[in-house]
Design a protein around this nucleic acid. Structure first.
Length: 462
DNA sequence: TGAAATGTTGGGGCG
DNA sequence: ACGCCCCAACATTTC
């Protein structure tokens, strides 16, 4: 069993199948890719380390253990398979272009020695490609996808195996590192802000979520200053939770549960889109938007990334991202619109910045969300969708709780100014010690001018 | 899971 | 009591 982003024992078809063998080794390969500072957030490394320890403990309870091997899986997996003389390597199929290419390479190398790579379902709720239109194509629009997807029987979650087979002889010869000793992932961070990784903490979070908060999801999911969302995204991304189990355990007793189920469907949708059209990982889903003349404006990008745009709601969100490794979904939409429309910076730069900082950074969901914001994706509208950061702030952070938390220099502003501090009189700026341009940046763009510029740019380019 | 412009409605102040 | 005006709140249309 080769674990990747399925670090759990519950509802894991690959593990159930692997547990049927006479002998079983459980392996995780720590790819140098997972250590790249430019691409993987510290919160995510810490999560991964804790998840490996948790998984090792769980496997131990079933009579197994987790072998953590350092290196490139393209070499490590075939080599370990050879050393242990295994017939079959079981995996949970992953659908990003990177994962698909990696698995094909491993499959080929295994086949050279007569071994098999066996893929199982388990990242998404419905297998990619299985939800199809009447004309037998993959859906490009969410709403009809959702209709079909909801009617589908996704099956019942599987229990963990009762026990695991003995390890193969020769397992002691494999060069491993104990899960508790993976120094490369030993990252210190603000404990209260970073989620603990692993199936144990993830299942606790799911239990707590389903125990009540999910029923208020409909009303509270867009309120930025309130913990009204599930916060399960890292658990689902790393596979410490089965999305299918989360979905199955909803009993639809409240609008909140229905709305949450729809969010799980969005996750499946973007995964299905990526599996079918892998080029979307590199550029616009819609061909006509692949060569838009985005502005290569480094100063604007830096101001955005550092939370120094002068728009409180944007700056709050960007600072939350860097500190927590996480950002509220409503805020993700706001900052994405700001980067793509107000600043006209290529959405792929924002996508990469998110991937490098998010604890949950998921290729499919992140890409789908960015393309939604940029207007290049499956949901492209005839009109150009441009968020007004001030309006969004007033609507979704009416009391300024979110802004005050993440932009402390604005904490003393009254509610009716907190989302547009530049409208304070000079006297008020002095009194409140928030002089615009000194204590807090002046807005780097005039939104209404930027909006017009974006609309002109869009009509020129398309 | 948009924003802004435009249209409609209804309450309150006032002559 | 009534008409008129203003304006906020809400709905619809347009981009």
């Amino acid at each position: 069993m080769w674990f990747r982003r399925d670090l759990r024992t519950h509802d894991l078809p690959a593990l159930v199948a692997a547990a049927d063998a006479d002998r079983l080794a459980c392996v995780f390969v720590l790819d140098p890719h997972l250590l790249d500072h430019e691409r993987v957030s510290p919160a995510r490394k810490r999560y991964l380390r804790q998840a490996l320890v948790d998984l090792d403990n769980r496997l131990a309870d079933l009579g197994g253990r987790l072998l953590v091997v350092l290196g490139d899986p393209r070499h490590v997996v075939p080599a370990v398979a050879k050393d242990l003389e295994v017939d079959t390597v079981h995996v949970t199929a992953d659908h990003t272009p990177f994962a698909v290419a990696r698995d094909e390479a491993v499959e080929t190398a295994l086949a050279d020695d007569g071994r098999t790579l066996e893929r199982h379902q388990g990242v998404s709720i419905a297998p990619p490609g299985s939800v199809r239109t009447g004309s037998d194509s993959v859906y490009k629009v969410f709403t009809p996808f959702h209709r079909t997807w909801t009617q589908r029987d996704h099956g019942e979650p599987l229990a963990p195996p009762a026990a695991l087979p003995k390890a193969p002889d020769g397992v002691g010869r494999i060069d491993t590192v104990a899960p508790t000793e993976v120094a490369q992932l030993d990252v210190e961070g603000p404990d209260e802000a970073w989620p603990d990784g692993g199936e144990g903490p993830a299942r606790d979070r799911l239990d707590d979520w389903l125990d009540g908060p999910v029923d208020d999801y409909d009303d509270r999911r867009d309120v930025l200053g309130v913990p009204g969302t599930s916060r399960l995204s890292p658990d689902l991304h790393m596979g410490c939770l089965s999305a299918r189990e989360a979905w199955t355990r909803l009993d639809r007793r409240s609008p909140g549960q229905d709305t949450y189920a729809t969010e799980l469907a969005w996750r499946d949708f973007y995964l299905h889109v990526m599996a079918e059209w892998p080029d979307t990982a590199r550029g616009a889903f819609r061909e006509e938007y692949r060569d838009l003349p985005w502005h290569d404006d480094d100063d604007a990008f830096e101001a955005w990334a550092e939370g120094q745009t002068g728009f409180p709601i944007v700056d709050a969100a960007m600072r939350q991202l860097v500190t927590m490794g996480w950002m509220h979904n409503r805020a993700r939409m706001i900052v994405a619109s700001f980067l793509c429309k107000d600043l006209l910076v290529d959405w792929r730069r924002g996508e990469a910045h998110f991937m490098a900082n998010l604890v949950d950074g998921d290729t499919c969901s992140n890409n789908g969300g960015w393309q939604w914001a940029a207007g290049t994706g499956t949901d492209a509208q005839q009109f150009i969708r441009i968020f007004n950061p001030t309006t969004q702030g007033k609507r979704f952070d009416p009391d300024g709780v979110y802004v005050r938390r993440w932009v402390p220099e604005l904490a003393d502003l009254p509610n009716n100014r907190i989302h547009e501090p530049w409208t304070l009189s000079e006297e008020d700026q002095e009194v409140l010690a928030v002089v615009i341009g000194e204590d807090y940046p002046a807005p780097i763009v005039d939104h209404s001018e930027a909006r017009q510029r974006a609309m002109d740019w869009w009509s020129q380019a398309t």
